[in-house]
Design a protein around this nucleic acid. Sequence first.
DNA 1: GCTTGACCCTGTAGTGGCTACAGGGTGTTC
DNA 2: GAACACCCTGTAGCCACTACAGGGTCAAGC
Lengths: 151, 151
Amino acid sequence: MKIGELATRTGCPVETIRYYEREGLLPEPARSSANYRLYAEPHAERLRFIRHCRTLDMTLGEIRTLLDYHDHPRQPCNAVNGLIDDHLAHVEARIEQLQALRQALATLRSRCNGEADSSHCGILQELAQPASRDLPVEAFEPSHVPGPHGH
Amino acid sequence: MKIGELATRTGCPVETIRYYEREGLLPEPARSSANYRLYAEPHAERLRFIRHCRTLDMTLGEIRTLLDYHDHPRQPCNAVNGLIDDHLAHVEARIEQLQALRQALATLRSRCNGEADSSHCGILQELAQPASRDLPVEAFEPSHVPGPHGH
DNA sequence: GCTTGACCCTGTAGTGGCTACAGGGTGTTC
DNA sequence: GAACACCCTGTAGCCACTACAGGGTCAAGC
């Protein structure tokens, strides 16, 4: 099967498939005489694995690690559990940050009733203050789970 | 005050201050005879405004809009409310996505007890399936709030 | 007057995970 | 032989920074 068919079968854009190949997540497939990539079912399975992990917001690095366990299955799979647990902890931390964010935004929103002109807007006045009262310190620490503008 | 002092006063890295200037969020300051940037208190206030908005996970585009209302305060501030409401909606949508994600990861985690070697690991087997059973369709739609790996 | 070291400058490249071209080749159908 | 869908490589762009490289400036200490 050519790359377009793999793309429609897996729901993954053609450009992204080529990107995964460049990144070493998908092996280089055979080529036709016209230099077209030719895939078989194992490629589709591996790509579905990758896409499944991506819908779980794993990084390509995490996925590479999982694929490595998959490709070399002699090791005990505690490490797989550990990776999932770590990722789960990241997601939970990010949920807590976003909940604090939501609270801060709701408070901010309540500063203005929308009637005045913006020179008296309580929101703009509030934003001119330092942020320390809104959010706990953890909200500023690096996380490996994206915030509201990702995806 | 030079850029280093502004940085320590606002908690914003020097490189980031120069970046905001390049992006047009901070006006170009005066320069000393040695071509050093020289800031005054209004610059610090504006930078605090920007950093406060960033801790609320607003994009630089959203912040630019708010700064514009701040700089041209004749308009009614309904638009400010609208921007905050939209942002709040993004954050809430992202929280729901991440909660679905957490559920999917917890289910995945329960597939393996860590005893077997990874060729029989239920997690790896599960990941080789298509993702459709785990997550609702909305989890794949674009959001403007980052997922677990941001920050 | 010379060195050390902290600070400042510009410009460029890298991060992640794609996405979107530009500029070309291939293959099928009419 | 023309139209059109598909394929190829390579490069640049997205966001919000971050991290250099390679240089200039300035005050303190010897």
